[in-house]
Each structure stands twice: as C-alpha cells, then as structure tokens.
Design a protein around this nucleic acid. Structure first.
Lengths: 186, 186
DNA sequence: ACATTTGTTGACTGTTTAGTCAGTCGTTGG
DNA sequence: CCAACGACTGACTAAACAGTCAACAAATGT
C-alpha cells in the first residue's frame, strides 16, 4: 500500500467535490484511511500537497498524450492524434481534468514557476513552428495558435461531459471538431 | 456610500488574489472599510456573498454585451459585435473576468440553478438557431457551437492578457481571430 | 543480534474562522 | 418630539483548522 498515492487519490476526489480550502486535511487523511500526521509526513504543508497533486496529474497527462501521438506519418496526423489523445484522456480522467482546471484558475497557479510552464509547452511550440515553416498552418504567433487549440480542446471536452453521448457519437464529434479546428488554423 | 457595493468590490479584489476560502470575511470587511457585522447584515453567509458577486458580475457583463451588439445589420455583424464586446469587456474588467472563471471552475457553480443558466443562454441559442435555419452557419448542435465560440473567446482573452499588446495590435488580433472563428463555424 | 533510519500514529495545541448579538446611531413619518 | 425602524458596530464565541510531537512499529543495514 502506497500511502502517499492513497493521499493523492483522496485529495483529488475531495478537492473536486469541495474545493481546495473547503477540504480539511483531516478529511483527506480519513478518506485515504491513514492517520492525520501521515499526511504531513509526505507533504510538509497543505499547499505542498495541492501543488504536488497538480504536478503529478500534469505529468501523467503529458506522458499519455506524448505516447499516443508519436510516430505519426504526417504533420496533420500528429496534431490530430494529440488532439484526440487529450480528449480521450480527459474523458477517462474527469476528476483529474476538473482538478487541473480548478487549479489553473486559482491563485495556486502562481506557485508554479513560469520556467516550468514554458518547458512543458516547448515541444508543442516547436512542432507548431515546424508547421508554420513548412507553410502548412497560418503564420500566426505560436502561443496564439496554442491558445486556440487548447481552448477548443477544453471547450469540446466540457461539451462531451455535459452531454452523455454514446461512444460512437463521441468519436464522431471529436473527429468533426478537429476538422473545424484544422480549417481554422490552416 | 453604498456599503453593500463596497463589500462586493473588496470581495472581488481579495477573492481573485487569495481565492474564496483564502479570504476571511474579516479581511473583506476591513478592505471595504466597514464593520465585521455589516457584511453579515447584507449577506447571510459567506457563500451567499460569493454567489451574489457572481450573479452581479454576470448581469453586468451580459448587459454590456447585449447593449453593444444590438442593431447590427447582418447576422455576421451581430455575432461579431458580441464577440468584440465580450473581449473588450473582459479586457477592461480583468478582475471580474478572472473571478468568473475561478467561480465557474469551482464547486460553487453547483449553487447556480441549471434553469437560471439555461435562461441566460437562451438569447444566444435562439440567435444561433436562426443562423442555422438561414444556412449561414453549419448545422451543428447549438450548444456545441456556443461552446466553441465561448471557449475561443476565453482563449483569446487569456492570450491578450498575458501579452500586453498596444491597443492597435489588440484590435487587429481580435478582428483576425474572429475571422478564424467565422471560418470555423460557416 | 542490535542500532539506525524511515514510516506511522492520533491526541494535542495555538490560531483563525464564520457567524452572533446586544446595543448605538441616524433617519423617517406621525 | 418621539417612536419605530433599519443600518451599522465590534467585541465575542464555539467550532474548525493546519500543523506538531512524542511514542511506537517496521524495515534496513552492520
């Protein structure tokens, strides 16, 4: 039994349900089935737990997307696979997705160093730059393009979650919306 | 001096800086320059204050967008003016915008009745339906179209805020991104 | 076999918090 | 002029909170 992971799992569930400050550390420990003090053995403060959870989830998500999008033949296919992988991950990990969005829109985000954020974005920026050089996508600033792509991903995901479509319809919508996105940036 | 408004203003500023639960009611009262008890005279609980602030800001924003987008000649112009007005409002009211996003991604959102949300969305849905009937925009579900439009609006706003462009460049980007959006939905 | 480190516990504490309340003050209407 | 009322006050309280700590248990190294 990895008590650290049990704590992270419990924290995730409770943070999404009650919010960061609406969730006492005592409740997290109880939900995880460990003693109160154990939480502070693994995380010096509650803030550190929140940030650690964010970093953990982010790295799992990036890993998944990267793993699924590598080895595509064309530029379009690579972008498309990334889009698809992001959405399928979000659909399969809704708690994680909601936590990340909550975190990103909270003052906690300030605790993530700008350099760290930039580093995690670099692979995507590099790829978009390549697409611009090869005249496949519009010559707009890469951070603008990235913003457009990720906000659409977020939007479609919200839409899929609030309507509980069957798998086939989901797939269709994801595919269609990618073509709309592609039309926008090329 | 309207102390209720002073409290709402103080709460807005502090919530954006420290988060909902990171802001004690005592600090809100102090920042507003009123006594502790006065806060509870106007708002029965802290939660009620948070929700009241959200409703207040939302209605101001809708009012502004509606006011600026009415009386346009064509369907495209109407949509465009709404897009522009939303972005200009967000740029001029960044605290409000950030608060709304924080609220939307928090468990507080559950305290807003679904019927209320639907009612506030209806005018937009009606308009989009009109556009579909007249074969101007793609025959996709209106809630999907709305999601695409609003998530792009959110994304562009994030981009404009994080890069501090001169007014002219801002205007250019907003205009360009609208054309990209229009290309996507027509 | 023992020593040392690492993990784990839960009762405890000092502080902070939302919310209360008894009472003051200024205004309005009879 | 004064009664009634709502706005307003700030000291107060009971509960909840993050974080501590001394003790114990298990694993690891020698």
């Amino acid at each position: 039994m990895d008590k650290k992971q049990l704590l992270l799992d419990a924290a995730l569930k409770l943070f999404v349900e009650y919010g960061f400050h609406g969730t006492p550390t005592s409740l997290i420990a109880k939900e995880a089935g460990v003693a109160n003090g154990t939480l502070f053995h693994y995380f010096k403060t509650k803030d550190e737990l929140v940030v650690a959870l964010y970093v953990d989830i982010k790295s799992r998500m990036s890993g998944y997307v990267f793993e699924h999008a590598k080895g595509q033949a064309t530029f379009k296919d690579t972008i498309k696979e990334q889009y698809l992988a992001s959405l399928y991950w979000a659909l399969d990990n809704q708690l994680q997705f909601r936590f990340v969005e909550q975190f990103k829109n909270s003052p906690y985000l300030a605790q993530i160093a700008p350099l760290e954020i930039e580093a995690s974005l670099k692979p995507f920026y590099d790829m978009l730059n390549k697409g611009i050089k090869e005249k496949i996508i519009k010559p707009q600033p890469v951070d603008l393009l990235f913003t457009l792509i990720s906000s659409q991903t977020y939007g479609i995901n919200q839409y899929l979650i609030s309507n509980n479509f069957p798998k086939a319809k989901q797939h269709q919508l994801i595919s269609d919306s990618f073509e709309m996105l592609w039309a926008m940036i090329t």
